[in-house]
C-alpha cells in the first residue's frame, strides 16, 4: 500500500480525507486505483494531473516506481512559460 496525498479539490470530492492508501507499485497503477476506489476522482485525474514521487514531479510517467514508503503527492497539471 502507498499513501497518496491528495489535491484540495480531490479532498473535497471524497469528503475531506487528506491522505488515502491504495495498492500500487507505479504511477499508473496508483492513478487507476484511485479512480477505481474513488470514482468521483475520475474526471479530475483524466483532466490531467502531475504526480510528485519522493520530491520529483512527473507529468507523464506511467511506470515510475512507487515504493511502499514513497512520498506521493497529486498535483495539478502544470505549464511553464
Amino acid at each position: 500500500m502507498v499513501a497518496v496525498r491528495l489535491l484540495g479539490s480531490m479532498r473535497s470530492a471524497i469528503g475531506g480525507a487528506e491522505m488515502v492508501e491504495v495498492e500500487a507499485a507505479n504511477t499508473i497503477q496508483m492513478l487507476n486505483a484511485l479512480k477505481r476506489e474513488y470514482p468521483v476522482l475520475t474526471d479530475i485525474i483524466e483532466g490531467g494531473v502531475s504526480v510528485a514521487i519522493d520530491g520529483l514531479v512527473y507529468e507523464n510517467a506511467w511506470f515510475t516506481e512507487i515504493k511502499p514508503d514513497s512520498e506521493v503527492v497529486i498535483m495539478p497539471l502544470m505549464k511553464g512559460g
Binding site: 489535491l7 484540495g8 479539490s9 474526471d43 479530475i44 483532466g47 495539478p76
Partner: peptide, 18 residues
C-alpha cells in the same frame, strides 16, 4: 466546470487549495 466549488457563480471555472 468540474473544478468549480458547489455554489460558485457561473463564470468560476476552478478552485484548488494547498
Amino acid at each position: 466546470y468540474t473544478g468549480a466549488p458547489a455554489g460558485s457563480g457561473p463564470n468560476v471555472t476552478h478552485y484548488q487549495d494547498y
